[in-house]
Amino acid sequence: MSRVVFVLLPGVHLLDLAGPAQAFGTAADFGQPYLLSYVAEQEQVPSAQGLPLIADTEWPELGPDDLVVVPGWRAPTLRGGPELSPAALERLRAHHAVGGTVASVCAGAEALGQAGLLDGRRCTTHHELQDELAARHPRAIVMRDVLFTADDGVVTSAGIASGIDLALHLLAVRHGPALAAQVARAMVVYARRNGHEPQASAMLRHRSHLDDTVHRVQDLIDARYTEPLPLAYLAASAGVSERTLTRLFTRAAGGLTPLRYQQTLRLERAEHLVSRGMTVETAAREVGFEDARMLRRLRARVLF
Rank of each mutant, 00 (worst) to 15 (best):
H13Y: 11
V142T: 14
D151V: 03
S157N: 01
A200V: 00
T213P: 01
A140D: 02
P258L: 12
F6R: 03
V214A: 15
L78E: 10
R285K: 13
V4I: 14
A202S: 15
V173W: 02
E58V: 03
L171A: 11
E197D: 13
G81W: 11
A178M: 05
I54W: 12
Q130L: 08
E290D: 09
S37N: 02
P52Q: 12
S157H: 09
R260C: 07
V155E: 07
A235D: 06
E43K: 07
D222M: 01
R121E: 00
G63S: 12
T257N: 15
V68R: 05
G120P: 00
G100N: 02
G11N: 02
S2R: 15
V280A: 14
R122E: 13
E58P: 01
D145G: 10
P76R: 10
D152Q: 08
Q22K: 08
W59G: 09
D151R: 04
L89R: 14
T244L: 04
L170G: 03
R293F: 13
E197V: 01
A150T: 00
Q262T: 12
P20I: 05
V189W: 01
A270I: 01
L234D: 08
L133W: 07
R243P: 00
V155F: 05
P228R: 13
E268R: 14
F304L: 15
R297D: 15
A232G: 08
H209G: 01
A135D: 06
A191S: 06
R299T: 14
P198T: 07
A178H: 11
L147P: 13
T149C: 08
E268T: 02
V12Q: 03
V302P: 06
L51Y: 10
Q32V: 03
A300P: 02
R216V: 10
Q32R: 01
Q199G: 15
A238P: 00
S104I: 08
R121T: 00
P198H: 05
V154C: 01
H196V: 04
G81M: 03
L295C: 07
A103M: 00
V146L: 04
V214C: 13
R293H: 02
F289Y: 15
Q42H: 04
W73P: 00
A284N: 07
Q182S: 10
G254F: 11
L62V: 07
V102P: 00
A88H: 11
R224L: 03
E286M: 10
W59N: 14
Q262L: 13
P64L: 02
D219V: 05
D152V: 11
T250N: 10
M187N: 02
V154F: 02
L133Q: 06
F6Q: 04
A292H: 13
G100Q: 05
P258W: 10
A236F: 11
L89S: 04
P20R: 12
A252T: 12
A200W: 04
D219T: 00
D119Y: 04
L168H: 13
R269E: 01
P82V: 05
M294K: 08
V142S: 12
S47D: 14
D16M: 04
A107S: 15
H137D: 00
L204H: 13
E43P: 00
L53A: 06
M278G: 13
A134C: 05
L92C: 06
L17D: 10
D29L: 13
T156D: 07
H175I: 06
R301N: 13
P71M: 07
R207K: 08
